[in-house]
Amino acid sequence: MKNFKGKVLFLDRSDINTDEIIPAKYLTELSKEALKPYLLEDLKLEGFNPKTDIAGKSIIVTRANFGCGSSREHAPWALEVNGINAVIAPSFARIFRQNMFNCGMMAIELPEKIINHLFEKYNTGDAEIEVDLAHHAIIISSGRNVENIPFELTAFDRALVEAGGWVEYANAKY
């Protein structure tokens, strides 16, 4: 199973699309590793610098409809090779969400109110999140603040994460 613990990258914008996550010109790459330098290269977000803001981060917290647009699985792959295996948002585009779980990664949905709260209280630069898969909860901490926030996860999605992805699961079953 992949690592779901580490520093948080807050991306304060809704509708971040997969062209922004990994531009189409890099889709000619055949290895996931080659995508690494280009993650979020075209993200339209004031104050965000992909060259300095991504390194060392393991979890993204963002706004609604993350991953909309193109079906490219290069988007989760670009996250994965940068050590980011989980994204937390109020909602995701269908294909992106499925791609994440198909890769054994996590797209965690939390109510908008809670996401607002995370941005208000923890967007300070040193926040950390640990996903507790056994208890379907995230543990977020920053300085002295620590909170345990439950999320919903279907048995199927959990099975994909534990199996390491959909190929392993489907090959064993169908």
């Binding site: 079906s71 490219r72 294909i95 499925q98 791609n99 992805g165 959909w166 190929v167 090959n171």
Partner: peptide, 10 residues
């Protein structure tokens, strides 16, 4: 429906 590479692979 559009899918990612893993769904396509399966």
């Amino acid at each position: 429906a559009g899918v990612g590479t893993t769904d396509l692979e399966v």
